[in-house]
């Protein structure tokens, strides 16, 4: 079954507890962050002590805090980092800034979206709701996509990020099939900008500038292997990689730093004081399709409304099957033969 919408019921805590990361970290008490010296002391100085009810409002920006924590974690060896993303659905405003920022950062072609945001409507007028759900790659701890790769072109790094060697992928798209989250997609070689010859800038300009401007994703890095040009990713599978080329340089992933709702958080789960840990502790979270045992590294916070978000996801799955598939593909059954029969 598709519906991986199980609520964790504290599975996070048990998981964290198992790892004993939280030893001694008291709820809320870990909020206080030590002021660092040097480059990273980005906190606004001399803050008046805020009234208790507006707890986090006057502290440093989450972006600054996460950047600082990221840079701290980079000092540890790779295998001691565990990157996770936390998405607070209460703060997601369905703006797709992350989506487009990702396209811009990774220069992905049309048809590839590392981070779509799914939007769907539930309820009836006037009690209608719009639901937003961003879906990066889950960077599973038990990735179902890597083991199916026939040529070892994709694997999980020690810090939990699932990467693809673009120089090795043969383009069989088996991993695309295996990913239960739809997080892998094929680069068919389309380009955003019309063939140059059609515009007033005919000949070279815009094309060079837009499409040949390569992402660092294509650059030869320790994570991706050989040197790639745009041509080298055509025909193969691509996926979200938490912007390794940014995080390794101490910069937050593009989707995190551009999220105008402030809904996306990134950090090291192995750092008990990190913002992501604090959020998970404070609000609890669920992960998508946990029953598949993929152990995703992306957590969704729903707050008190969590249960309803999940039931809405489930309702939407059913509705999709009954309505959207019906619309796109036709078909006459609405319920099973045993239930409703032919209409």
């Amino acid at each position: 079954m598709v519906d991986g919408l199980r609520r964790p019921n504290g599975s996070e805590t048990s998981r964290l507890g198992r790892r004993e990361f939280l030893k001694g970290a008291l709820l809320g008490a870990a909020v206080t962050v030590g002021v660092l010296s040097g480059d990273l002391s980005l906190r606004v100085a001399a803050q008046p002590s805020p009234p208790a009810e507006s707890l986090a409002l006057d502290r440093e920006s989450e972006l600054v805090r996460m950047t600082r924590e990221l840079q701290e974690s980079l000092k540890k060896p790779l295998q001691e980092r565990k990157w996770v993303m936390v998405i607070d659905l209460r703060r997601c405003v369905g703006c797709h800034s992350c989506t487009v920022s990702c396209i811009a950062e990774n220069k992905t072609p049309p048809g590839i979206t590392y981070r779509p945001v799914m939007i769907w409507e539930t309820g009836e007028y006037p009690n209608v709701k719009l639901n937003f759900l961003p879906r990066p790659c889950m960077q599973c701890d038990e990735p179902p996509c890597t083991s199916v790769c026939p040529v070892n072109a994709t694997w999980k790094r020690e810090d939990g990020i699932v990467v693809i060697d673009y120089g090795k992928c043969i383009g069989c798209r088996y991993c695309v099939m295996a990913c239960p989250y739809g997080a892998r997609s094929t680069d068919y070689g389309y380009e955003w900008v019309p063939e140059l010859e059609h515009g007033p800038l005919a000949g070279t300009a815009a094309k060079e500038r837009q499409d040949r401007v390569k992402s660092l994703e294509y650059q030869p890095t320790p994570w991706y292997g050989g040197p790639y040009g745009r041509g080298d990713t055509i025909g193969i599978t691509r996926k979200c990689h938490f912007c390794i080329h940014r995080i390794e340089s101490g910069v937050l992933p593009a989707c995190v730093s551009t999220c105008i709702g402030g809904a996306t958080y990134f950090g090291d789960l192995n750092n008990p004081n990190s913002l992501v840990n604090e959020l998970l502790r404070r609000y609890g979270a669920f992960r998508l399709k946990e029953e598949l045992g993929t152990e995703p590294s992306v957590y969704y916070i729903t707050g008190e409304g969590g249960a309803s978000v999940i039931s809405e996801l489930e309702a939407m799955v059913d509705r999709y099957r009954e309505e959207v598939l019906l619309r796109e593909f036709g078909g006459r059954f609405r319920a099973g033969l045993g239930g409703g029969g032919l209409e």
């Binding site: 972006l63 487009v100 937050l252 730093s257």
Partner: peptide
């Protein structure tokens, strides 16, 4: 090293 928030249109300015 700190990129701040920017909306979808701003991101697309390059285009």
């Amino acid at each position: 090293k700190i990129d701040a928030y920017l909306c979808v249109k701003g991101q697309s300015g390059i285009e």
